[in-house]
Design a protein around this nucleic acid. Structure first.
Lengths: 222, 222
DNA sequence: ACTATCCCTTACCGGATGGTAAGGAACCGG
DNA sequence: CCGGTTCCTTACCATCCGGTAAGGGATAGT
């Protein structure tokens, strides 16, 4: 029925990609439809042919990110069951998700600043289960003595998520302040903070040395 | 010489306050001169009488924040010299500065997103000394055994600063995800993360119990 | 060959935006 | 009483914004 020309999904998806990049870099209000059209190489009404309004485009861009997120979410949650490995896989997945494409973090941050009410509702619906699951894991580890006794499960998880987001979003700024700024040094410290503020000293010491022979010691020790 | 009417600094400063609030809430591009003029209760050319352009107003707003920061900075750095007290006073001052007026955090975050290059230069010039001083304190504590042996001084300080900023800026969003969201619970966990990822287990235990009788135990233990 | 549909173009529009021109009201030193 | 300065107004402007109208060229079904 549609007169496909192999450009059917082409211009539309290119528009979505360009809009994502531009919204992340300059913000929604700071980006004009002309900017997006120029980036794709078409005219302004062409992008409005696929997205009825700029506002709808914003929603499409945000949906694209959340969809990607919800697709990697299950994989993230059924990670290894061992206490320490589970932490590493979940935290690693989180870091990878945002540092792989900092635009995701920037966009999320902008949404939190520009439309907090909307993001609230959105997170309330789609991130609560995830938060609850991870928080439950933290709580179990705490009751089992593996985690700090005074850790606040939900607050801890939220803080760590925020930390990953802002580290990814502002990497270009902070790298200018760190003098000998290797990015992985920055990321390594991020992981260290998350670990050492979660695991009890006993669990940390155990993982560092006399535990199972499963993983080679990847602890930083320069 | 000037025909003062007691409104000399009035409208100007009110404009600055309104602009700060609006820029923080809606962003620079999302705020019109008309919005600002309406908030102050004057006409659009009136605000342009004090600030020759919208761009100059942005600079004035940012300068206002950095000036406030630079004014409280020295007080922050000459804080108590005892290891644990120094941490508490510096970290507490940081938290207080941003949570007292979340607009500061939001504005800083927006600047990092909208104009990373400019903020880079600005931070490079005015925040490097502060970072260096605190990092040096962290390093000294590490070499003295009070801090974790594998802490990365500069990266740690940067991460903590970012964490405080985003926690203040996004409090309205995250509070919707935390179910029984007392704000101070959120802040308490923030301080716990900062402490337990910095101090070595021995130093933490000492501070919690058998140390000097200086402070009453304020550790959370619900 | 005819029609319909899809994709995209040129041309245009109402409204809002940042900024300017010009002048008026209040106050000043003289 | 008289310029002069400061502060703020009304009126206005060029530009750009998101969005629409209308149509052309290509393709597909019939």
């Amino acid at each position: 029925m549609p007169a496909v020309r192999s450009a059917d999904t082409d211009v539309r998806s290119e528009t979505l990609v360009a809009a994502t990049r531009l919204f992340a870099a300059r913000g929604f209000e700071g980006t004009t439809l002309q900017d997006i059209a120029d980036a794709v190489g078409v005219t302004k009404p062409a992008v409005l042919h696929y997205f009825p309004s700029k506002e709808r485009m914003r929603e499409a861009v945000l949906d694209g990110i959340l969809e990607h997120w919800n697709r990697t979410l299950p994989r993230l949650l059924v990670a290894a069951s061992a206490s320490r490995d589970r932490f590493n896989s979940v935290f690693g997945e989180l870091v990878r998700f945002f540092s792989a494409d900092p635009d995701r973090a920037r966009l999320l941050l902008r949404e939190a600043l520009d439309r907090p009410a909307e993001l609230r509702k959105l997170l309330r619906g789609s991130m609560r289960p995830w938060l609850a699951a991870v928080a439950q894991y933290v709580r179990a580890g705490r009751d089992g003595g593996r985690h700090h006794a005074d850790v606040d499960d939900e607050a801890y998880v939220l803080h760590m998520a925020q930390l990953v987001v802002i580290a990814s979003a502002c990497a270009s700024v902070t790298s200018a302040v760190l003098p000998t700024a290797a990015v992985d040094r920055y990321e390594r410290e991020l992981a260290r903070i998350a670990r050492s503020s979660l695991f009890s000293p006993a669990a940390l010491a155990a993982a560092n040395g006399l535990h199972k022979r499963k993983r080679a010691s990847r602890m930083s020790r320069r």
